[in-house]
């Protein structure tokens, strides 16, 4: 980009900035030790609690995660049996 025939002071291109942001978020999560290694355990325990009340299939639990800069969300979907007698 040029203005009056002079190059502007070299600026960080937008995609490089995006890359930096993505890495910052990712590395912040990895360094804080909040890597999702605890998830298998979490899943087993959640399933255990629910099974005290309802019969659910082991395959019926689905955990999704979305990590963001400000907050991360953990989405847990459990398919319950359709009807109870």
């Amino acid at each position: 980009m040029k203005r009056f025939g002079l190059p502007l002071w070299p600026r960080r291109s937008s995609s490089a900035q995006t890359a930096k942001n993505r890495l910052q978020i990712l590395l912040a999560h990895e360094r804080s030790g909040s890597t999702p290694d605890y998830l298998p355990q979490l899943q087993r325990e959640i399933l255990e609690v629910i099974r005290r009340h309802v019969t659910v299939d082991e395959e019926a639990i689905d955990i999704r995660m979305e990590q963001g800069k400000e907050l991360s969300s953990l989405e847990i979907n459990i398919e319950l049996p359709r009807s109870r007698p």
């Binding site: 993505r22 890495l23 978020i25 990712l26 999702p36 998830l39 298998p40 955990i63 999704r64 995660m65 979305e66 990590q67 963001g68 991360s72």
Partner: peptide, 12 residues
């Protein structure tokens, strides 16, 4: 995951 842009969605 970084190259595919799904690094924030990795659970298992």
């Amino acid at each position: 995951d970084m190259i595919m842009g799904c690094e924030r969605r990795v659970v298992y």
